[in-house]
Design a protein around this nucleic acid. Structure first.
Lengths: 135, 135
DNA sequence: TGTACTGTAATAAATAGAATTACAGAATGA
DNA sequence: TCATTCTGTAATTCTATTTATTACAGTACA
């Protein structure tokens, strides 16, 4: 997870949590994060698919939270953006003729799952409201 | 951490743990991982700087563990290769004129530290020997 | 003294990430 | 109704990061 999707999504949701009830445009949000509005709309699309955001097209459109900030867990956000393995194993094709190479991906997966579990237990105890209230 | 440094280092150390006492060449190790030998030598160089590996130059040279596999913690490996933030925040420069943008990096840092702590407590309880014995 | 290694720098190639451009479609309201 | 202001999404370009490759000096051995 070397890309900025987690912090971008959290940033978007924090803005929405603080302007609860009003619709924020992707341009406005992009201005706060300082990234391209198209990226914001992509993340919004993803968060909408995960039930955290509602959005409205057309003039005066924008995005808003789909449910109370207190009911959105940081682990929900993690799950929504998570794609690659936590400790990195992109593109690894060990030698299947080697006793270690043959099995290492399986053992790495087990290890990552274990570690991710610990991380998730942390994130499950923090809500978007907790985070947004720090500001 | 989107690169493969953690799994590569763990793979190297696992091979060494299983061939404890003998010197393995970077070519041999690279063959098991299926990557370029120069990358292996770079990781070995890093692990050596962190006291986990010893290496010998010249003919019949190679690498070997610098201490018993039971005394090398997975958290040691994590520290040796860790460079970027766990949940990604590369290159983020939020708008300082926005109340949220201005403070978010600080709050993200706090959150990451908290999460990383949970992860490290997991890794501190696993040794290289534990991992290598799975094969 | 030739051979087989490590160590490291420099460069090139491949991949991934982010920005940009483009445009169709939706909602608003003048 | 129709210009305006948004979203949604695809396609492309640009840039940064990661990995592979090339090159070669230095070391140890036999």
């Amino acid at each position: 997870m070397n890309n900025a999707r987690f912090p971008i999504s959290l940033h978007i949701l924090t803005l929405l949590a603080r302007e609860s009830g009003t619709l924020l445009s992707s341009d406005y949000i992009a201005g706060s994060i300082n990234i391209n509005p198209v990226l914001v709309r992509k993340e919004i699309s993803n968060l909408r698919n995960h039930g955290m955001i509602e959005s409205k097209e057309g003039k005066n459109g924008g995005a808003t939270l789909a449910k109370p900030a207190g009911t959105i867990l940081l682990s929900d956000i993690y799950h929504a953006v998570q794609q690659t393995s936590l400790l990195g194993n992109s593109r690894n094709h060990p030698n299947p003729d080697c006793a270690v190479g043959k099995q290492i991906n399986q053992h790495l997966d087990d290890l990552y799952k274990d570690i991710e579990g610990a991380l998730l237990r942390k994130l499950e105890h923090m809500t978007l409201a907790d985070f947004a209230n720090k500001f």
